[in-house]
């Protein structure tokens, strides 16, 4: 089932890579300089790191039938807090911890609106999406705050052979995969997303779970925000993380996790994030103006979504079922 879902994003990614190689054979080249790995693929990974990280948090939120539109604004807030604190002479580690704690609090706030007040996720997180960026602007007083802090710089542009940013994202991805799959969290998240009433009757603490995933999405957004701001040594409250929530949602959806909640695939999310980032790079390689990437993005999204849509699945399944008649559940008959 999961493998079937990953087919189309894999095809998309492979096509993009082949296209790149055809246009620019040096695409696959990697070289080591000063102990750092360089090359187009490394660039893709590094530039895609914040999106991937946010998409990991978003995957869990979407698995519970939710959505978090505020992650871009939260990312901007994280950068703003860290840079303001550091430029005020504060310690880097404290700055980072401070920024991340605030982001977790913001995630908890979203979770509160969704799980306790029962507000639709899309509108609950729209509040912070709108107000959050304003808050970040308030912190930076509308200025772009630049910092010169070697330690802070490492988050976004440091290297440990590979870029540190991508190492962080992959570490989080792996940790989430391990934690949700080795503990019961993943199963409970999916149960809440697939059939909340059944979960509730089986005694699942759905409220706590929903609260947790929003808090975690806030944390991911915070780290991603630090990466973005550290990469440019500045906090730009206006444009940092702008539209990143949309890219993250697309990565999740392309990766085969349905917006209707339920089964999620972190591997799919990673593929989705790679597809989006590679697409951006490809368009650039081909020489099309960067902004036009959006057209290609739209085409890829629509293609993948149509291929995964219930209607298409039904049509494919109908064809399979006429070939091999199977007895399915009898629920249809009741009522």
């Amino acid at each position: 089932m999961t493998r079937g879902r990953l087919l189309w994003p894999l095809v998309a990614l492979a096509t993009l890579i082949v296209l790149n190689i055809a246009v620019e054979p040096s695409f696959v080249e990697l070289r080591i300089q000063d102990g750092h790995l360089f090359g187009s693929i490394v660039d893709i990974l590094r530039n895609g790191a914040p999106t991937l990280l946010i998409a990991v948090g978003m995957t869990l939120v979407i698995a519970t039938r939710g959505i978090d539109l505020s992650v871009g604004a939260v990312a901007a807030i994280a950068g703003a807090i860290a840079c303001t604190y550091i430029s005020g002479g504060g310690d880097t580690v404290t700055a980072v911890l401070l920024a991340l704690s605030v982001c977790v609090l913001l995630g908890l706030w979203n979770g509160f609106l969704v799980s306790v007040l029962g507000i639709q996720p899309i509108i609950a997180t729209l509040v912070l999406m709108t107000a959050g960026r304003g808050g970040a602007m308030l912190l930076t007083e509308g200025q772009i705050i630049t910092v010169k802090d070697p330690l802070y710089r490492q988050i976004g542009s440091g290297f440990l052979i590979l870029p540190i940013a991508i190492l962080i994202s992959l570490a989080v991805l792996t940790a989430v995969a391990l934690i949700t799959r080795r503990t019961a969290l993943g199963m409970l998240i999916e149960a809440v997303g697939i059939n909340p009433r059944a979960g509730e009757l089986a005694g699942v603490r759905s409220r706590t779970i929903i609260w947790t995933v929003y808090a975690f999405a806030g944390l991911c957004a915070g780290v991603a925000g630090l990466m973005i701001s550290s990469n440019v040594n500045a906090a730009d409250a206006n444009s940092a993380g702008l539209w990143i929530e949309m890219d993250a949602i697309l990565a999740v959806v392309i990766g085969g996790t349905s917006l209707a909640g339920g089964r999620y695939s972190l591997a799919g999310t990673m593929l989705g994030a790679l597809v989006i980032q590679t697409l951006t790079t490809t368009v650039y390689t081909i020489g099309v103006p960067t902004n036009v990437t959006l057209v290609f993005k739209a085409v890829v999204v629509i293609a993948v979504c149509l291929l995964q849509s219930p209607r298409t699945t039904k049509m494919l399944r109908a064809r399979r079922e006429t070939a091999v008649p199977t007895s399915r559940s009898q629920e249809v008959a009741a009522g």
Binding site: I67, I122, M246, I249, L250, V253, L259, A260, K297, A298, V301, I302, C305, L306, S309, P310, R311, T312
Partner: peptide, 11 residues
């Protein structure tokens, strides 16, 4: 195609 309005209009 029963794709969510959110995704379609985002595209």
């Amino acid at each position: 195609f029963e794709v969510q309005p959110f995704i379609v209009t985002l595209a």
